[in-house]
Each structure stands twice: as C-alpha cells, then as structure tokens.
Design a protein around this nucleic acid. Sequence first.
DNA 1: ACAGGCATACATACATGAATGTAAACTTGA
DNA 2: TCAAGTTTACATTCATGTATGTATGCCTGT
Lengths: 223, 223
Amino acid sequence: MPKRTKAEAEATREALLDAAEVIFLERGVSRTSLEQIARQAGMTRGAVYWHFKNKSDLFHAMLDRVKMPLRQLLDDVEDPERPRAPLESLRLATLHALARLQRPRSRRVHTILFHCCESSSDVDILDLHQKLSDECFETMVERFQEAHRTGTLVESVEPEIACRMLMSMFLGLMHDWLRGPDRYDIGEIGPRIIDTFFERITLYPTAGIGTSSAPTESSGSVQ
Amino acid sequence: MPKRTKAEAEATREALLDAAEVIFLERGVSRTSLEQIARQAGMTRGAVYWHFKNKSDLFHAMLDRVKMPLRQLLDDVEDPERPRAPLESLRLATLHALARLQRPRSRRVHTILFHCCESSSDVDILDLHQKLSDECFETMVERFQEAHRTGTLVESVEPEIACRMLMSMFLGLMHDWLRGPDRYDIGEIGPRIIDTFFERITLYPTAGIGTSSAPTESSGSVQ
DNA sequence: ACAGGCATACATACATGAATGTAAACTTGA
DNA sequence: TCAAGTTTACATTCATGTATGTATGCCTGT
C-alpha cells in the first residue's frame, strides 16, 4: 500500500533506520544488504532508495540520530552559569556520558561504530572519530591545565597525560563493555572507575569529592 | 611458471599474507577481494586458494603471525624466576606490550583488527577479543589483589577496579593511537601514561619507582 | 644416475549468486 | 490531476568457489 501521509512517510524513514540498527548490529555493516534492512522494516528496497541515497547515506543518517557522547560530554561540561571546579566538572561530564551510552539506541549505534563496521568501507569512521577526539582533547586539556595551575590536580600529574588517561580509559571502557554488555554492569563499574581515577589525581584542600560539596576556591594560583 | 620449490612455496605464502596486511589496511577486510590480495603479491587467486581455504582462513593465518600483545604481556609478566613486586611486574609487562605494538607488523595487524574489520564478517573478532580479555583480566587481577593485600596498592583502590582501569587505558590508547599513529609519539606518551597510573595507585614503603621518589600521601580517604 | 610417474604449486576458465542502482509502473494523499 | 511515496523489474557488476589445465619439482625403482 504505497503512498502514506507525510507523517507516515517519516515513520517509515524512522523504521528503516531502526531496522538498520538491528541488522547492522547482528550482521555487520558491510554484510547487510539494503534489502535485508528494508524487509526488517516491512518495506522493500525502493523505500530505502527513496529516503536515502545509498547505504553510506543511510549509515550517516543513523549516526545523526544519536548525538555523539563525547561531544555531548563537552556541551554538558559547560552547562550552567554556575562554575564548578574543573576536575569536578570533568568527572560529572564523564559520568553523564557514561549514562548516555547505556540508553538502548546510543548503545546499539556505538556498538556498531566500534565493532560492526570497517574504516574505509561505507563511511569514513576514522575522520569521524578523529575530529571528535581532537576536539574533545583540546577542550578537556584546558580544564586539566586549569586544575594544575590552581593546585587541584596533583602536581606530578601532567595535564596532557591526565587528559589522555581519562580519554583512553573512557574509550577503552566503551570498547570493552560494548563488546559484551552482559558481562558486567557498566552502571556500577563505570562510575567506580571514573571516581577512582579522579580521586587519585585530585588534591583536596579541605573536603572530598563526596556528593557535590566540592570546594571551588583554592584560588591561590601557584604557577 | 608453476610448481616452485618447497621453500619458494612458503615464500609465496608469506608474500600473500604480507599483501593481505597491506590491502586489508587500506581497503578494509570486507572490501578487499582475494584477487586484489593475489595481485598485490604478484600472484593469482589460484595461489590464494591453494594456500588458504578462503578469506577467513587467510585472515586467521595473518593473525597467527603476530602473537597477541595482551597474551604476550601475560607471558612476559611471568618471565624470570626472580619474583618482582606485583605492581612493578604489571607495569613492566604493560610497557613491553606497548613496545611490541610499535613493531610494523604488529601495528598493521592490530590496526586492521581495531579499525578495518567487522565483527561478524569474515572472522569472529568478538570471541577472539573476549577470550583474550577475560584471560588477561583473570591473571592481572590476581596481581592487583596481591598488591592490595601486601599494602603496595593504595587501599582505597579496589583491585578489580584498578585492573579494569589499566586494561581500559591500554585498550583505549591502542584504539586511539592506531587510528592515526602520526598524531603523537606513542613511544613517549604511552610510558608516561602507564607510569603516571602506577605512580598514582602505588604506595611506596621506602623508595619510589624509577626516578621519582614521590611519596603518595593524601591517603586521607574521604567520605 | 636417470627416466618415468606422481603430487605439488600455481594459473585460467567458468558457473553461480548476490548486491547495486535505475527506470518504469503503480497507488494514493493533497 | 499531480506529485510524493513505494513497488516491481531489469541490467550490470563483481566476488566467490570450483573445476580444470599444466608445468615443474621430487621421488622411486632399477
């Protein structure tokens, strides 16, 4: 029954993307044909070619439905007008990114990105990750540098190294957990890892990280 | 000129695997045909099908030429009769694994594993990583537990968490660096990351690790 | 030692199937 | 009716696996 209303057309588009997520996940991107995606959505290849130029286009559209967590992380760091201690801000952002990752769609798409698609096949994952990673590093390292200046970051820990440690840990944790999400509860392990990391590199002038009563002064710029 | 000597046949086999590394790297595994591999090696598909059952078999043969660094890491931890402190043994093993990764062949193959192949396409990467990762965790966590018992590991750091931190950091660093090896010198950044990590979780009864005799105080476990 | 015979180490040819992209038909909402 | 949305049909491309061809190295009997 062709030709639905405009809303229905949009619904089939979403259904196609949903289907793509499922099939990409279980067959891998390169091994899934557009017909498999169409059938999973209850359509035919014609519908796919109407809404998307080709598989690569569909893939990008699928990615666009989930904001990348690393980018979202940065946005949430900047979030309120209320300035936090830089390390605390980074910690919360990381935890938030971890929480986002557990949402079904985000989890599926990132699993596909990490484990079910090749670099130079249908989409240039390399550049995609590259830009995100670089942008993420540049923004986060400023926080670490500020923490280092203000003495919140343990002095023997270089800001650039701390930043790469955090990013590597997060990346590695994603990679490992998404490989087999049922092996352990990321909602429990993840925060413990993040918190332990920040606990080990943070110098507390007065109180601890605890819940949120982190001290935000220590304005004695050491230099 | 068919039918070479036995040594020559073995040489073509190696040439085919070399070619596979190159082409897999630049085209991705699923997009490379066996003919492309054969031509890169100066052969035809007949040679490929003589030496290997199919693309999956060839892929596994390629993997077999590089011992997996994580497994090699564990072997080297156990290496001499001389018993080391568990954390120091882990640190050295990690550094050694990092060094191995920089060797051209290892680097190429691991780049392929991380970025140029899908999970359920030609080989089951998931299981492959899974077994390795689990085995690695089980062995390493014992070391961390021992360090925790003997007081070498900072008490507020749980052994299981420390183990996952190290593994995630290493995995994430591999993933990130192999994505664009020319962005930074892993030979310099890597060890600094590893050393900083162990410096931050180690309690030194008397002296420090390499150069830095930094005492890790701040043991006032808050909360 | 050497002449056959056989297995080896490839190359070539072919049959098959599957995925792609496009064009044309169809069907219904606006 | 017109165009958006979807189906069906078709031509093309391409990789795969296999079957066959073939020349050479190696071995064995004498």
